[in-house]
Protein backbone atom coordinates (compact mmCIF):
# COMPACT_ATOMS: atom_id res chain seq x y z
CA UNK A 1 0.00 0.00 0.00
CA UNK A 2 1.37 3.31 -1.04
CA UNK A 3 1.46 5.24 2.23
CA UNK A 4 2.38 8.51 0.67
CA UNK A 5 -0.60 8.35 -1.59
CA UNK A 6 -2.86 7.35 1.26
CA UNK A 7 -1.67 10.16 3.46
CA UNK A 8 -1.98 12.67 0.66
CA UNK A 9 -5.50 11.52 -0.12
CA UNK A 10 -6.41 11.65 3.53
CA UNK A 11 -5.11 15.17 3.86
CA UNK A 12 -6.99 16.28 0.80
CA UNK A 13 -10.10 14.54 2.02
CA UNK A 14 -9.87 16.13 5.44
CA UNK A 15 -9.33 19.63 4.13
CA UNK A 16 -12.03 19.36 1.48
CA UNK A 17 -14.18 17.93 4.20
CA UNK A 18 -13.67 21.08 6.23
CA UNK A 19 -15.36 23.08 3.52
CA UNK A 20 -18.33 20.77 3.53
CA UNK A 21 -18.32 20.80 7.31
CA UNK A 22 -18.63 24.58 7.44
CA UNK A 23 -21.47 24.75 4.97
CA UNK A 24 -23.10 21.80 6.72
CA UNK A 25 -22.75 23.70 9.96
CA UNK A 26 -24.73 26.61 8.65
CA UNK A 27 -27.23 24.21 7.23
CA UNK A 28 -27.55 22.33 10.51
CA UNK A 29 -28.03 25.45 12.60
CA UNK A 30 -30.84 26.63 10.38
CA UNK A 31 -32.48 23.23 10.25
CA UNK A 32 -32.16 22.83 13.98
CA UNK A 33 -34.04 26.05 14.61
CA UNK A 34 -36.60 26.12 11.83
CA UNK A 35 -36.75 22.54 10.56
CA UNK A 36 -36.13 24.08 7.17
CA UNK A 37 -33.78 22.74 4.52
CA UNK A 38 -32.16 25.93 3.39
CA UNK A 39 -31.30 25.13 -0.20
CA UNK A 40 -29.81 28.56 -0.54
CA UNK A 41 -27.04 27.77 1.95
CA UNK A 42 -24.71 26.65 -0.81
CA UNK A 43 -25.36 29.78 -2.79
CA UNK A 44 -24.54 31.94 0.21
CA UNK A 45 -21.23 30.09 0.24
CA UNK A 46 -20.80 31.02 -3.40
CA UNK A 47 -21.48 34.68 -2.71
CA UNK A 48 -18.90 34.52 0.05
CA UNK A 49 -16.35 33.30 -2.42
CA UNK A 50 -17.13 36.21 -4.68
CA UNK A 51 -17.00 38.75 -1.88
CA UNK A 52 -13.57 37.46 -0.97
CA UNK A 53 -12.53 37.78 -4.57
CA UNK A 54 -13.67 41.37 -4.81
CA UNK A 55 -11.94 42.31 -1.58
CA UNK A 56 -8.82 40.67 -2.90
CA UNK A 57 -8.86 42.51 -6.21
CA UNK A 58 -10.04 45.66 -4.52
CA UNK A 59 -6.90 45.79 -2.49
CA UNK A 60 -4.51 45.18 -5.31
CA UNK A 61 -5.07 41.57 -6.15
CA UNK A 62 -2.87 38.52 -5.63
CA UNK A 63 0.10 39.88 -7.55
CA UNK A 64 0.49 43.27 -5.92
CA UNK A 65 -1.46 43.46 -2.68
CA UNK A 66 -1.69 46.81 -0.96
CA UNK A 67 -1.02 45.31 2.41
CA UNK A 68 0.66 42.29 3.99
CA UNK A 69 -0.96 39.08 2.86
CA UNK A 70 -2.16 37.88 6.29
CA UNK A 71 -3.95 41.18 6.86
CA UNK A 72 -5.52 40.94 3.44
CA UNK A 73 -6.71 37.44 4.23
CA UNK A 74 -8.25 38.61 7.48
CA UNK A 75 -10.08 41.36 5.65
CA UNK A 76 -11.33 38.94 3.03
CA UNK A 77 -12.71 36.62 5.64
CA UNK A 78 -14.20 39.45 7.62
CA UNK A 79 -15.99 40.99 4.69
CA UNK A 80 -17.21 37.64 3.45
CA UNK A 81 -18.47 36.54 6.82
CA UNK A 82 -20.24 39.77 7.62
CA UNK A 83 -21.57 40.15 4.11
CA UNK A 84 -22.90 36.62 3.97
CA UNK A 85 -24.27 36.88 7.45
CA UNK A 86 -26.29 39.90 6.42
CA UNK A 87 -27.36 38.17 3.25
CA UNK A 88 -28.60 35.25 5.30
CA UNK A 89 -30.58 37.55 7.56
CA UNK A 90 -32.15 39.27 4.55
CA UNK A 91 -33.06 35.97 2.95
CA UNK A 92 -34.68 34.77 6.13
CA UNK A 93 -36.57 37.97 6.65
CA UNK A 94 -38.07 38.14 3.19
CA UNK A 95 -38.25 34.62 1.86
CA UNK A 96 -38.78 32.45 4.91
CA UNK A 97 -40.34 34.48 7.68
CA UNK A 98 -43.66 35.03 5.87
CA UNK A 99 -43.85 31.26 5.56
CA UNK A 100 -43.21 30.43 9.22
CA UNK A 101 -46.69 29.07 9.69
CA UNK A 102 -47.15 27.58 6.26
CA UNK A 103 -46.96 23.85 5.59
CA UNK A 104 -43.47 22.42 5.34
CA UNK A 105 -43.36 22.30 1.59
CA UNK A 106 -43.82 26.06 1.15
CA UNK A 107 -40.53 27.34 2.59
CA UNK A 108 -38.74 24.49 0.84
CA UNK A 109 -39.95 25.65 -2.52
CA UNK A 110 -39.22 29.23 -1.59
CA UNK A 111 -35.69 28.15 -0.67
CA UNK A 112 -35.36 26.53 -4.06
CA UNK A 113 -36.42 29.79 -5.63
CA UNK A 114 -33.92 31.73 -3.56
CA UNK A 115 -31.13 29.37 -4.56
CA UNK A 116 -31.93 29.72 -8.22
CA UNK A 117 -32.33 33.46 -7.86
CA UNK A 118 -28.94 33.85 -6.23
CA UNK A 119 -27.18 31.64 -8.74
CA UNK A 120 -28.48 33.56 -11.68
CA UNK A 121 -28.12 36.96 -10.08
CA UNK A 122 -24.48 36.12 -9.54
CA UNK A 123 -24.24 35.09 -13.16
CA UNK A 124 -25.88 38.31 -14.26
CA UNK A 125 -23.83 40.63 -12.11
CA UNK A 126 -20.47 38.92 -11.99
CA UNK A 127 -20.71 37.38 -15.39
CA UNK A 128 -20.23 33.71 -16.04
CA UNK A 129 -17.56 34.19 -18.63
CA UNK A 130 -15.24 35.89 -16.26
CA UNK A 131 -14.70 32.67 -14.43
CA UNK A 132 -15.26 30.26 -17.15
CA UNK A 133 -13.50 27.24 -15.75
CA UNK A 134 -10.40 27.30 -17.85
CA UNK A 135 -7.22 27.23 -15.81
CA UNK A 136 -5.31 29.86 -17.73
CA UNK A 137 -7.90 32.48 -17.10
CA UNK A 138 -8.10 31.92 -13.41
CA UNK A 139 -4.82 30.66 -12.15
CA UNK A 140 -3.79 34.15 -11.32
CA UNK A 141 -6.79 34.94 -9.19
CA UNK A 142 -6.14 33.30 -5.91
CA UNK A 143 -2.51 32.52 -6.29
CA UNK A 144 -0.56 32.97 -3.11
CA UNK A 145 2.93 31.83 -2.33
CA UNK A 146 2.13 28.41 -1.06
CA UNK A 147 4.55 27.60 1.66
CA UNK A 148 4.24 23.98 2.19
CA UNK A 149 4.82 21.80 5.17
CA UNK A 150 6.86 18.71 4.64
CA UNK A 151 6.89 16.33 7.52
CA UNK A 152 7.63 12.77 6.61
CA UNK A 153 5.02 11.65 4.15
CA UNK A 154 2.80 14.61 4.95
CA UNK A 155 2.66 17.40 2.45
CA UNK A 156 0.31 20.15 3.36
CA UNK A 157 0.17 23.62 1.97
CA UNK A 158 -0.31 26.58 4.26
CA UNK A 159 -3.70 27.19 2.82
CA UNK A 160 -4.85 23.75 3.76
CA UNK A 161 -3.57 24.18 7.28
CA UNK A 162 -5.36 27.48 7.44
CA UNK A 163 -8.56 25.81 6.32
CA UNK A 164 -8.44 23.10 8.91
CA UNK A 165 -7.43 25.50 11.63
CA UNK A 166 -10.16 27.98 10.85
CA UNK A 167 -12.74 25.25 10.63
CA UNK A 168 -11.81 23.92 14.05
CA UNK A 169 -11.90 27.40 15.52
CA UNK A 170 -15.30 28.14 14.04
CA UNK A 171 -16.74 24.81 15.11
CA UNK A 172 -15.48 25.28 18.62
CA UNK A 173 -16.76 28.82 18.74
CA UNK A 174 -20.17 27.74 17.55
CA UNK A 175 -20.39 24.85 19.97
CA UNK A 176 -19.51 27.16 22.83
CA UNK A 177 -21.97 29.72 21.57
CA UNK A 178 -24.84 27.30 21.53
CA UNK A 179 -23.96 25.56 24.76
CA UNK A 180 -22.77 28.33 27.04
CA UNK A 181 -24.19 31.67 26.04
CA UNK A 182 -27.59 33.15 26.72
CA UNK A 183 -28.37 33.49 23.07
CA UNK A 184 -27.30 29.93 22.52
CA UNK A 185 -29.78 28.84 25.12
CA UNK A 186 -32.42 30.91 23.39
CA UNK A 187 -31.56 29.19 20.13
CA UNK A 188 -31.91 25.78 21.68
CA UNK A 189 -35.22 26.74 23.24
CA UNK A 190 -36.56 28.07 19.97
CA UNK A 191 -35.45 24.90 18.24
CA UNK A 192 -37.40 22.70 20.60
CA UNK A 193 -40.64 24.64 20.74
CA UNK A 194 -40.94 27.99 19.09
CA UNK A 195 -44.26 28.99 20.51
CA UNK A 196 -43.29 28.13 24.02
CA UNK A 197 -40.07 30.08 23.58
CA UNK A 198 -42.06 33.14 22.55
CA UNK A 199 -44.19 32.78 25.62
CA UNK A 200 -41.10 32.59 27.78
CA UNK A 201 -40.08 36.02 26.61
CA UNK A 202 -37.61 35.04 23.94
CA UNK A 203 -37.75 37.21 20.85
CA UNK A 204 -37.79 34.31 18.43
CA UNK A 205 -37.59 36.53 15.37
CA UNK A 206 -34.29 37.92 16.58
CA UNK A 207 -32.98 34.55 17.64
CA UNK A 208 -33.79 33.07 14.26
CA UNK A 209 -32.20 36.01 12.49
CA UNK A 210 -29.11 35.53 14.61
CA UNK A 211 -28.99 31.85 13.77
CA UNK A 212 -29.16 32.68 10.10
CA UNK A 213 -26.45 35.28 10.51
CA UNK A 214 -24.13 32.84 12.18
CA UNK A 215 -24.86 30.00 9.81
CA UNK A 216 -24.44 32.16 6.74
CA UNK A 217 -21.30 33.82 8.04
CA UNK A 218 -19.71 30.43 8.51
CA UNK A 219 -20.69 29.46 4.98
CA UNK A 220 -19.23 32.70 3.71
CA UNK A 221 -15.93 31.90 5.36
CA UNK A 222 -16.03 28.54 3.63
CA UNK A 223 -16.52 30.36 0.35
CA UNK A 224 -13.33 32.34 0.76
CA UNK A 225 -11.50 29.15 1.67
CA UNK A 226 -12.83 27.49 -1.43
CA UNK A 227 -11.53 30.29 -3.55
CA UNK A 228 -8.14 30.16 -1.87
CA UNK A 229 -7.81 26.44 -2.34
CA UNK A 230 -9.31 25.95 -5.77
CA UNK A 231 -8.64 29.20 -7.62
CA UNK A 232 -11.61 29.05 -9.90
CA UNK A 233 -14.94 30.31 -8.68
CA UNK A 234 -18.10 30.47 -10.66
CA UNK A 235 -21.76 30.88 -9.93
CA UNK A 236 -22.52 27.16 -9.83
CA UNK A 237 -20.11 26.16 -7.09
CA UNK A 238 -22.77 26.91 -4.54
CA UNK A 239 -25.25 24.38 -5.77
CA UNK A 240 -22.78 21.55 -6.29
CA UNK A 241 -20.97 21.94 -3.00
CA UNK A 242 -24.18 22.73 -1.25
CA UNK A 243 -25.59 19.37 -2.18
CA UNK A 244 -22.53 17.61 -0.78
CA UNK A 245 -22.82 19.73 2.33
CA UNK A 246 -26.45 18.70 2.80
CA UNK A 247 -25.31 15.13 2.53
CA UNK A 248 -22.62 15.78 5.10
CA UNK A 249 -25.14 17.34 7.46
CA UNK A 250 -27.53 14.43 7.08
CA UNK A 251 -24.82 11.82 7.51
CA UNK A 252 -23.48 13.51 10.58
CA UNK A 253 -26.86 14.07 12.06
CA UNK A 254 -28.86 17.06 11.08
CA UNK A 255 -29.19 19.68 13.79
CA UNK A 256 -25.98 18.61 15.48
CA UNK A 257 -22.86 20.79 15.29
CA UNK A 258 -20.26 18.09 15.91
CA UNK A 259 -22.33 15.99 13.54
CA UNK A 260 -21.85 18.51 10.75
CA UNK A 261 -18.11 18.42 11.32
CA UNK A 262 -18.03 14.63 11.30
CA UNK A 263 -20.28 14.42 8.29
CA UNK A 264 -18.14 16.88 6.38
CA UNK A 265 -15.01 14.90 7.08
CA UNK A 266 -16.74 11.66 6.09
CA UNK A 267 -17.93 13.09 2.79
CA UNK A 268 -14.56 14.69 2.07
CA UNK A 269 -12.72 11.47 2.73
CA UNK A 270 -15.21 9.45 0.74
CA UNK A 271 -14.73 11.70 -2.24
CA UNK A 272 -11.01 11.66 -1.89
CA UNK A 273 -10.60 7.92 -1.53
CA UNK A 274 -13.01 7.04 -4.30
CA UNK A 275 -11.30 9.41 -6.69
CA UNK A 276 -7.90 8.12 -5.74
CA UNK A 277 -8.44 4.42 -5.47
CA UNK A 278 -11.33 3.42 -7.63
CA UNK A 279 -10.99 3.25 -11.41
CA UNK A 280 -12.80 6.19 -12.98
CA UNK A 281 -13.60 7.12 -9.42
CA UNK A 282 -13.94 10.76 -10.33
CA UNK A 283 -16.80 10.09 -12.69
CA UNK A 284 -18.75 8.09 -10.20
CA UNK A 285 -17.82 10.15 -7.19
CA UNK A 286 -21.33 11.35 -6.67
CA UNK A 287 -22.69 7.85 -6.92
CA UNK A 288 -20.45 6.67 -4.09
CA UNK A 289 -21.32 9.56 -1.84
CA UNK A 290 -24.99 9.06 -2.63
CA UNK A 291 -24.74 5.37 -1.80
CA UNK A 292 -23.08 6.29 1.45
CA UNK A 293 -25.94 8.63 2.21
CA UNK A 294 -28.53 5.97 1.46
CA UNK A 295 -26.76 3.43 3.63
CA UNK A 296 -26.49 5.82 6.55
CA UNK A 297 -30.12 6.82 6.22
CA UNK A 298 -31.30 3.25 6.12
CA UNK A 299 -29.17 2.09 9.03
CA UNK A 300 -29.38 5.18 11.18
CA UNK A 301 -31.95 7.66 9.91
CA UNK A 302 -31.05 10.37 12.36
CA UNK A 303 -27.45 10.36 11.20
CA UNK A 304 -24.34 9.36 13.04
CA UNK A 305 -24.59 11.88 15.85
CA UNK A 306 -28.15 13.01 15.49
CA UNK A 307 -30.90 12.85 18.04
CA UNK A 308 -34.17 11.09 17.39
CA UNK A 309 -37.15 13.33 16.84
CA UNK A 310 -39.80 12.45 19.40
CA UNK A 311 -43.27 13.15 18.17
CA UNK A 312 -46.52 12.69 19.99
CA UNK A 313 -49.01 10.79 17.91
Amino acid sequence: MNWDEFVQLTVIGLTDGCLFALIALGFSIVYGILKLLNFAQGDVFMIGAFIGYFVLTGFGGPDAPDMPVPLLLVLMFLFAMVGCGLLGVVIERFAYRPLRNAPRIAPLISALGVSFFLQNSALLVFGGDRFYGSAELDSGLYRFPQYGLQWGPLQISILRMLTVGLTLVLCLALTLLVAKTQIGKAMRATAVDREAATMMGINTDRVIAFAFFVGSAVSGAAGVMFGLMFDNITNTIGFENGLLAFTAAVIGGIGSIPGAMLGGVVVGLAQSYTTGYLPSGATFQDVWVFSLLIIVLLVRPTGLLGKADIRKV
Partner: peptide
Protein backbone atom coordinates in the same frame (compact mmCIF):
# COMPACT_ATOMS: atom_id res chain seq x y z
CA UNK B 1 -34.81 4.30 0.15
CA UNK B 2 -36.97 7.20 1.10
CA UNK B 3 -39.90 5.14 2.26
CA UNK B 4 -39.24 5.54 5.91
CA UNK B 5 -38.05 9.09 5.77
CA UNK B 6 -39.60 12.47 6.16
CA UNK B 7 -40.39 14.67 3.23
CA UNK B 8 -37.28 16.73 3.83
CA UNK B 9 -34.96 13.81 3.31
CA UNK B 10 -36.86 12.76 0.24
CA UNK B 11 -36.13 16.19 -1.20
CA UNK B 12 -32.41 15.78 -0.63
CA UNK B 13 -32.28 12.28 -2.02
CA UNK B 14 -34.17 13.18 -5.15
CA UNK B 15 -32.08 16.31 -5.63
CA UNK B 16 -28.98 14.20 -5.35
CA UNK B 17 -30.35 11.71 -7.83
CA UNK B 18 -30.90 14.50 -10.31
CA UNK B 19 -27.35 15.67 -9.80
CA UNK B 20 -25.97 12.17 -10.25
CA UNK B 21 -27.87 11.77 -13.48
CA UNK B 22 -26.49 15.04 -14.76
CA UNK B 23 -22.95 14.12 -13.81
CA UNK B 24 -23.15 10.63 -15.21
CA UNK B 25 -24.47 11.58 -18.60
CA UNK B 26 -21.97 14.38 -18.66
CA UNK B 27 -19.04 12.09 -17.98
CA UNK B 28 -19.79 8.70 -19.39
Amino acid sequence: PSRRLFGDYLAIITLFFGQIFYNLVGNL
